[in-house]
Design a protein around this nucleic acid. Sequence first.
DNA 1: AGGTGGACCCGAACGC
DNA 2: TGCGTTCGGGTCCACC
Length: 277
Amino acid sequence: VPELPEVETIRSRLAPAMAGRCLMRVAILDSRLTRPEPPHSIAGELRGQHVSDVSRRGKYLVVRFESGLHLLVHLRMTGTLLHVPHGARSVDPYRRAVVTLDDGSDVVYRDVRRFGTWQLVRKEELDAFWSGRLGPEPLGPAFTSARLADALSGRRAPIKSVVLDQRMVAGLGNIYADEALWRARLHPLRAAGTLAPEEVARLLRAVRSSLSAGIERQGATLRDYRDPTGAPGRMQEALRVYGRTGEPCPRCGTPIEKIHVGGRGTWYCPRCQKPGS
DNA sequence: AGGTGGACCCGAACGC
DNA sequence: TGCGTTCGGGTCCACC
């Protein structure tokens, strides 16, 4: 499941391959990818564009073109981007789009569940696009204790559900939300608005450190995730609670438990992460 | 308005 | 062995 660390890893690999290149051919093979826009019109707009750089905002990968156009790729559940040399494409029923660069290499978009999206946004519309959807970058200077405390205040929803809200902070998904709450020693069902200032500060540090750990290890490969060379990440070995029902908590040895919060599987340590106030 | 639950999608895991 | 059923996950949308 690509969350911020996985998308950042993809970005860092894809940027040198795409920056400065021209898109020679664009084939979009799944109409879901661009809807409500028809695939051929998106493909037509992309063809001939020159790539300035590849960046990231939350879980979105952003390909910026010299024309001011931006391609926003969201991988959702099972999307992956592969960079393959000229002629090295293999038969793959899950291939949803192929972009051929002017060095002959292909950027292949693959997505088993077809949840991923490609959107085109012009430079002038970009800020409005982000501000309607995404909160601050968790690893950037805008993500502060004061801002987080303000956003949490009055919220009665479980803290886990609130940190998954991309307008609260951009980039956490189910894995890193559980990991961050474990690091912060907060029970996932705690009402978000009841966190003391000290706990908010702990949560902020925990969000940053869990995401940084994921980036350092180039993402977590639980099943589908691969970087653009096809290599898996290593973060799955370093996860403290996610998916580890019955295994000992790395901090206290108590068996990890699984519950459901807001419809999502949620792992936590019942001793380190007490329900609290 | 904030909170909750279903829809979307499809392979894997599970149950009989 | 083989079938049907359930699950999960990010985001949007309808509903309370």
